[in-house]
């Protein structure tokens, strides 16, 4: 890793820049994770027997599968966070 800037002498603008960079890296990592998962899951669901091209029914299936995976992700996130809230009130 590159040498860490000595943050004690960091200006406000430098800090903002660093925060922006970290946020961007996090966004990229999240997108990559989701992309990998979706490809893996939807390939399994939709490509039963790989043929010479991705036919239209497979494409339709993948499109729906992507949307449903994201729905599921959001539902898991919602369920999990409301559960966390309940647990913290106990």
């Amino acid at each position: 890793m590159d040498s860490l800037p000595s943050t004690g002498r960091m200006t406000g603008a430098q800090r903002e820049e660093l925060i922006e960079q970290v946020k961007q890296q996090i966004a990229i990592a999240t997108a990559q994770e989701l992309l990998t998962k979706i490809s893996e899951k939807c390939f399994k669901k939709c490509i039963i027997k790989p043929s010479s091209s991705l036919d239209s029914s497979e494409q339709k299936c993948i499109a729906m599968c992507m949307d449903r995976y994201m729905d599921s992700w959001n539902l898991v996130s919602k369920t999990y966070s409301s559960r966390l809230q309940k647990e913290s009130m106990r």
Partner: peptide, 28 residues
């Protein structure tokens, strides 16, 4: 959330359809 979606998808999702049906929602 990533890990749970992965696991619960395998358990709950049959053929992906045009919307998340209530049975699947419940299961998840």
């Amino acid at each position: 959330v990533h890990g749970l979606t992965d696991q619960c998808w395998d358990i709950c999702m049959e053929k992906p359809s045009s919307r998340l049906d209530s049975k699947t929602e419940h299961c998840i």
